[in-house]
Write a protein that binds this DNA or RNA. Structure first.
Lengths: 238, 238
DNA sequence: GGTGGAATTTGCTCTATCGCAAGCCCACCG
DNA sequence: CGGTGGGCTTGCGATAGAGCAAATTCCACC
């Protein structure tokens, strides 16, 4: 199992820069767990007992306000470190992680973290980068929400999803897990209705192809144009 | 100078958990620099040659879109670590930092970072927490922008500013540095005009007191009510 | 093969907020 | 001490997009 893990773990960015022996040491403390579709890996507000690396599948990370409003913070794909709440100084998870397809993750007890980074500085550096990237993404999202209209934001979101979890199909690029209009709305700060309208319009223009919890980008390039331009109907881009 | 620095640095969270000897070692590589009001500490897109700890003053960190739209990412107060772009794996600064009052910062060459965290794991842990907190704040901001109306967002923003950089005055709590309506707008994803209208209304209700680049919260408690409630005109809060 | 509920689509109305335009006021400069 | 420019206020449309309602489609499961 350790050797199996080692090969799977080979392309986990945060563990890069560690030699085989160190990797073994680290993996010794890990447990591999299966999460069936729609089950939660951890829940917002729960004690942050573990941190994880996703080996297989996709997770949706969502955050809920006291009033019940919800947003999708991000999607986690295989190879990513997640659930590092404790390392960031939190006692509880700030969000909920849900498997959107059957998934498998390695988990470590949070209390092993201080010792691990003491022993393997590369791990700390990796974690810092992971969190740093996440911060960049989130700030970019704030910038988008402040400066772009809904249509552009949706276009950006879909392109990002396609990049992160796109699967080439005959028709274009399909997002590789079930995702509803509601989910897209919660990623872009709008409503289910507006997303539906936008996708319908795009479908008519042959930009995307939709379905129940399914989105295929037929013309990513033209979509990108939409995302960049100020929504100008075409012809007078600057 | 080293001893002066050491006493100032005593309440820098990210350096807590280091003994005097280690602190000396770390401070040996640092330079102390003065940044006059309105000067920039670093610029978005410039090579990330240094990271910093703010000793004195306040900075505004802002990010600009290719199209020129701008947002205020956050304000930095004394004691905070900032400019850690390189540690997060970036080659260039993702934002611009500008002194809003005369300020002083310690700076280290970015290239010293890997060695420092190798030598002092506590430093890595501290940086991770700093960045983690920032991530939490930014995600909270996304949540706010998705779920709240402008008035609530402005209320929240002011309360946060008051907490971070509030100074008690006879009239209430004053934000301890010059901040324009435009700045508040760029923190909350709205426009100068809307912020002005909101503050005017609040001023009439005795909630705040305004001025040129100046905001005093006269009744933080009632403001908090505004921020929490769904903007209900009062009387039917739940 | 039928069926119930979730996901989606779509029309219509309503409004919060933007965008523009104009004028004001104060702090600082010369 | 008057001038001026930056910051602020305010009125008035215009509108993107939210909210509500209802119909439709599509599975998943019986």
């Amino acid at each position: 199992m350790a050797s199996l893990d080692r090969s799977i773990v080979a392309n986990v960015p945060v563990l890069a820069g560690l030699n085989a022996a160190d990797l073994d040491t680290i993996l010794r403390d890990a447990r591999s767990v299966r999460y069936p579709k729609d089950s939660s890996v951890f829940d917002q507000g729960a004690e942050a007992h573990s941190f994880f690396v996703l080996l297989h599948g996709h997770l949706r990370v969502e955050k809920t306000t006291p009033q019940g409003q919800q947003i999708v913070v991000r999607y986690v794909s295989a190879g990513e470190l997640f659930g590092v709440a404790q390392a960031m100084g939190l006692k509880t998870y700030p969000a909920t992680a849900i498997a959107v397809v059957d998934s498998v993750a390695l988990s470590w007890p949070s209390k092993a973290w201080p010792q691990l980074i003491g022993q393997f500085p590369a791990l700390a550096a990796g974690a810092l980068q992971t969190v740093g990237n996440r911060l960049q993404d989130t700030q970019a999202r704030v910038l988008e929400m402040s400066s772009e209209q809904v249509e552009q934001r949706v276009a950006h979101a879909l392109l990002r999803l396609a990049k992160q979890a796109g699967r080439k199909v005959e028709q274009g690029v399909e997002i590789d897990f079930p995702i509803s209009r509601q989910d897209v709305a919660e990623m872009t700060g709008t409503t289910l209705h507006t997303v539906s309208r936008i996708l319908s319009a795009w479908e008519q223009q042959g930009l995307v192809e939709g379905g129940r919890q399914r989105i295929v980008l037929r013309d990513p390039h033209r979509l990108f144009g939409l995302a960049e331009n100020h929504g100008k109907p075409d012809g007078e881009r600057r």
